[in-house]
């Protein structure tokens, strides 16, 4: 089945004005906070990684009609069922009907602070030299891929300049597909807005993103 993301929004027209919210509004309803906490607690079990969770969210067919935490909830339910941790019937009934599947960790209350403070760093030790150097012109992959990726559509096939070399990082594309960490060199690449948007681009406007080496070719 082809992989389809509904979350790749950069540059798309017709979404209207930005509606702001106040600095002190974290959650708009109690259920939103439960969804956040359930997602983090289940993430801590190690049954999936963050890129798999992002992939589960962005492939929800009704992504654009859902609120943010509805997206998280849908992604979480889908992953739980896909990994065999719960069944759709159990979710519908609101009651466990089958024995649990073993998981490697259960996050306890007293571990939360340490776990959050540690996070999940993605930088890895280099095993090969970086292919590109600072200031080098590169072109991004032009063709879409049939799997999770962090190369947005609006940056496909565009020429930019290597501005920063960030070291090898866990490669999101591989990580989301269950292919392991597959660390790849990561670079900040900067583009003139004219290269992305043509004549409508304002002078002095630039866009940068962080690109893994497989997204790039020499220009």
């Amino acid at each position: 089945m082809p992989y389809t993301t509904h979350a790749d929004l950069g540059g798309r027209p017709d979404f209207g004005p930005v509606v702001q919210d106040a600095e002190d509004s974290v959650f708009h309803a109690a259920w939103e906070s439960r969804v956040l906490a359930l997602s983090l607690a289940m993430g801590a079990t190690g049954c999936w990684n963050l890129d798999m969770f992002r992939a589960a969210r962005e492939t929800l067919p009704d992504y654009l009609d859902l609120s943010y935490y509805e997206i998280w909830l849908g992604g979480l339910e889908d992953l739980l069922v896909a990994k065999g941790l719960v069944t759709a019937e159990e979710l519908a009934a609101g009651r466990a009907r089958h024995p649990p599947k073993p998981v490697s960790r259960i996050l306890s209350a007293d571990q939360v602070a340490a776990r959050l403070a540690k996070g999940s760093p993605t930088e890895r030790t280099p095993t090969s030299p970086a292919r590109y150097r600072l200031g080098q012109r590169v072109v991004t992959r032009a063709t879409p891929v049939d799997h999770y990726t962090r190369l947005p559509a609006y940056l496909r096939g565009r020429t930019g300049i290597i501005e920063r070399i960030l070291g090898p990082h866990v490669f999101a594309d591989s990580h989301a597909q269950g292919l392991g960490e597959d660390p790849q060199w990561l670079y900040t690449v900067v583009f003139e807005a004219r290269e992305l948007w043509g004549t409508e681009a304002a002078p002095g406007h630039r866009v940068s993103f962080d690109a893994w080496q497989p997204y790039l070719e020499p220009a």
Partner: peptide, 21 residues
């Protein structure tokens, strides 16, 4: 329903959820 099922299965510690929030 989701929280109940995950708690009954023992995948989560409900007290950890409160600390996270």
């Amino acid at each position: 329903a989701l929280e109940t099922v995950l708690t009954q299965k023992g995948y989560i510690d409900p007290a950890a959820l409160d600390v996270l929030i």
